[in-house]
Simulated assay, not measured.
Amino acid sequence: MTLPRLLTLLSDEIPSAILLRHRLHSTPEIGGAEYETCRAIRELLPVPYRSAAGTGLIARVGPSGIPSVVVRAELDALEITEETDAPFAATNGHMHACGHDVHASALLALVRAAHRMGDDLPVPLVAVFQPSEERQPSGAVALLETGELTPEQATAMVAVHVHPDLPWGSIGAEAGAVNAAADAVLIEIEGRGGHAAYPHRTRDPVLALSHLVVAVHGLVGRHIDPLHGATITVGAVHAGSAENVIPSTAQARLTIRAMDESDQEELRAAVRKTAVHVAEAFGCTAELTFVKSEPVLVNDPALALRTQELAAGAGFTVSPPWRSCGGDDFAHYGAHAPSLMAFVGLNGAPGFIHAGLHDRRFLPPDATVAAVARAQALCYVAAITPAAGRPAAGTSV
């Protein structure tokens, strides 16, 4: 009876959680600077808390010293200028364009509802309000490397993320790989600059970089099995300062993503080889810097199954099988405990103007706060509920 009781208490907390969502959305802060975001959450927490990863929070509902289930939400925003008509739209050049304001507000509501259950809460719930999901250094890595989660004795770690590609009213809880490994790559091309009227006297890094941008976009199709998920995207190029000057350097920033770690390694090697040889063909040199941001995010099969089995009790249908080449630092928690990231659909939500994640028009409706909070409650209960003769995640047999 834990889930029905928790959902009943949760409904009372949604109005204040929506107000918190407006506050967080209107004053977004980027990773490592979530000071006011934490302050707003601390003011509403009904239980003791402690700082985590610098600008994050950990709050435990239930007694200490015994195993718990961890529910994680992100705090940071993106460096995007918002273009929505919301009365609580941000105006500081940052934006919650990935739903983190919704996730954090929903988790605050869940903490308050779980606290009201008192001794009826069967397993302690630990809320992790995590900083720096969108940028490096990762908040998840910081929490794990410092051992700040060790005292919580987590038997499972769960999280919920909104997604505009899934139907409203559905939850995605697929077993296995659901998000890709993600690397950030900086490629710097060194040439020899000069006057635009005498290109034959230069070694043009812009020309080399232009060919390289085209070349790397063809690597996935010739290195990775077409039935596997992988992508390479060049997101930024920088070179020069005037139309009549050939610069001496040019840069590109790109992301490599794959649903399999061996495919990711194959693409790293291919990008490096291609960059070196394309640059060489134009008389230039290439230097590459790789930042391995996230591993593949793999959902625990038992947690996924139980979430699907219990979904109707929280008012959800189970979405069709769904995976994404998105990356999330929640993937790091899978090495700490059985983990699950579930996705709540936005497509068709009342008032939702369809826009993708990280789009300056992305704005989940306020009703999403309740949907995410219910999904977080569902995942918590799934983590403590055996299914089909299997033990709960993290328990011994």
Rank of each mutant, 00 (worst) to 15 (best):
A53R: 09
A73H: 01
W168L: 03
I58P: 08
G147V: 03
E148T: 14
D165F: 11
M95R: 08
T91Q: 14
C98G: 06
H115W: 10
I80V: 15
P48W: 12
A86P: 08
R72M: 08
G54P: 12
G118Y: 03
A127V: 11
S68C: 02
S138W: 05
A90T: 09
G118H: 02
G118Q: 01
A114K: 07
L125P: 06
V141W: 00
V128N: 03
G56H: 05
I80K: 09
S51E: 15
L125F: 06
I80N: 07
G139V: 12
V128H: 03
V69L: 07
L143M: 15
P63A: 12
E148G: 08
S68D: 00
T146L: 00
A109I: 10
W168V: 01
P167I: 00
L121I: 12
A113P: 04
S105T: 09
L75F: 01
G99Q: 04
A53N: 08
D165I: 00
L166G: 04
S132F: 04
G56M: 05
V141M: 09
H103S: 15
M117Y: 03
P167M: 03
D85A: 15
P167F: 01
R112C: 04
Q130K: 12
P122M: 09
A156G: 01
V141G: 02
T150W: 01
A154N: 06
L75E: 02
G147D: 02
P167T: 06
V70R: 04
C98K: 07
D119Q: 14
A104D: 03
G54Y: 10
